[in-house]
């Protein structure tokens, strides 16, 4: 890598750089080529929705951004920091990137409040009182402050997912990633989670969202990325993406998903 570029990344001048930069990314699971030459830049404040048939590598792609998956070739630069195998750097990046999972993955042995304060207290070294105030702030924002003392198992799926969003926000991340956040919810709970995400988007959070909710994509996405078989097939603004998809595979996919 060019030394000048390396240096400039560590300076404040690059505060205006891209939030996420993915350059020539390849990943294999054994012999299976899951991600093929992915190039994607996410600007600060940009909302990107990634869609595509299952097994197309969408989740794997965003999991590469916070190093839940390793990759074999290419570069991932998050918030100006090049993601390497250096564990210290990995943790540094994970602190700045919030993630919401399909299965919520709340910690069942902790209350909602404790779920939200765990990382701020132990990673950010925030005093407990302050962490609880922050947690209450975000729980209020996702509209479940009254559930703070309950355990995850006592909440509905939609409530659990909103807690998961609040838990990620408590770390005050610069980027939020969502991995099919509504796919394991009952239909009547999808809306409450999507509303929370829309509110977050309106606040200017940088978001990378893997989802099949095309309504959400239309409403908040700056760009929609369509993936198939480990490749990015098409990137476009939602208006153009939905009204005039360029690639024939995109058209086939949209035809199937919008017909439902």
């Amino acid at each position: 890598m060019d030394e000048a570029v390396e240096n400039s990344r560590s300076t404040d001048a690059l505060a205006a750089s891209d939030a996420v930069e993915i350059i020539g990314l390849h990943k294999w699971f054994g012999d299976f080529h899951v991600l093929v030459d992915i190039n994607l830049r996410v600007a600060r404040g940009e909302r990107i929705v990634i869609c595509g048939p299952s097994g197309s590598g969408k989740s794997t792609l965003i999991r590469c951004v916070n190093a839940l998956e390793t990759y074999q070739r290419g570069e991932v630069i998050v918030d100006g920091v090049l993601l390497t195998h250096d564990l210290k750097r990995v943790d540094e990046i994970r602190r700045e990137v919030g993630m919401v999972f399909q299965q919520f993955n709340l910690f069942p042995h902790l209350t909602v409040m404790e779920n939200c304060t765990l990382a701020p207290i132990h990673v950010r070294k925030m005093p407990r009182k302050e962490a609880e105030a922050v947690a209450m702030h975000y729980l209020t924002r996702v509209r479940i402050p009254e559930q703070a003392q309950k355990y995850p198992a006592q909440l509905s799926g939609g409530q659990q997912q909103r807690v998961a969003i609040a838990r990620a926000l408590c770390m005050n991340p610069k980027i939020m990633m969502f991995d099919e956040p509504t796919s394991s919810l009952d239909p009547e709970m999808v809306k409450e989670v999507l509303d929370t995400m829309v509110a977050l988007a309106l606040d200017g959070m940088t978001m990378l969202v893997v989802t099949h909710e095309m309504g959400f994509a239309r409403q908040v996405a700056d760009r929609v990325v369509f993936m198939d078989e480990g490749q990015i097939i098409e990137i476009n603004e939602p208006e153009a993406f939905f009204s005039a998809p360029q690639h024939e595979r995109t058209r086939a996919f949209l035809g199937q998903i919008l017909a439902r």
Binding site: R95, V97, F107, V123
Partner: peptide, 20 residues
């Protein structure tokens, strides 16, 4: 998923073990 959620929050190996 428990390991992943803890790691995604930036809890390292030992804190993930001890706390989660």
């Amino acid at each position: 998923g428990q390991y992943e959620a803890a790691q995604a929050l930036g809890l390292g190996y030992w804190r993930t073990l001890a706390l989660v």
